[in-house]
Amino acid sequence: MYTQALNTAETDDRGLEDAAKAAQFQARIDAEERIEPNDWMPAAYRKTLTRQISQHAHSEIVGMLPEGNWITRAPTLRRKGALLAKVQDECGHGLYLYAAAETLGASREELVDAMLAGKAKYSSIFNYPTLTWADIGTIGWLVDGAAIMNQIPLCRCSYGPYARAMIRVCKEESFHQRQGYEIMVTLCRGSDEQKAMAQDALNRWWWPVLMMFGPPDAASQHSDASTRWKIKRFSNDELRQKFVDATVPQAQYLGLTIPDPGMVQDAEGHWRYSEIDWTEFKQVLAGNGPCNRDRMAARRKAHDEGAWVREAAAAYAAKRAQRQTAQAAE
């Protein structure tokens, strides 16, 4: 998901820490208590969460770029306002998440620097290009749909600040998927050219969206600790299946074909999808997706070109504080 590169919780180091404290901590988690910033927590829990929450934050911020690519070209004023508000929301979500990560001890600046240095990951999905207006519909419908699938259980995550941020995010995000689906409905009721545009977008985004849920359960060995700590409540494959089952009827309503000829519905009603190309996933995570370089370049440029503004604000604040001290001394 937005933290898919993770799926590798820190190995539990409770042996090194006070065993009694660790046992107490786990008992609190098992009793569905929330952990708050100043509470004692195992170092590995702190590290895992800092990584997961900051990756999630980076994903929201980098995620502004593919959709932001269409703000200036939205085809009507109504669509333009809605898209701008949506991309702005993503910025807000990144901001809430950085704040949640900061309660664990790292500063936003450190976390952002790690991302700009290429040391921290963000979701692979944002390394694909938005080529047509239908991509904006598809991202809202599928990418936000997948994100919501993942984020709803995170509202019950054991770490209080993360859970609270996710509640706020989920509340705000409810319009995003509807916004996207409305675009798709409009395209699919439109001209042949518009329908073809919608189908083409679905063809390009379908498999990358399925990859958002992360590697198959069989291949991800490290989610045990995250599960025990109740950071993660469903496995990658469980969430992926839930998403596919919810999406297939929506595609059918649109009259679009999911680009998986091997897909069949099983006896229990689940839609069984074909094998996912995990080589592509690994390549994109490794920096070789179609837009990795562009995304990083755009974020670095904004950061570098904004440095003088941040410096000015800091310098002014220092001057003003100095003047106030001087005045008080008079």
Binding site: S107, R108, E109, V112, R310, A314
Partner: peptide, 9 residues
């Protein structure tokens, strides 16, 4: 270069 911290509110 590390980015200087802006105060948290």
């Amino acid at each position: 270069m590390t980015t200087p911290n802006t105060p948290l509110w």
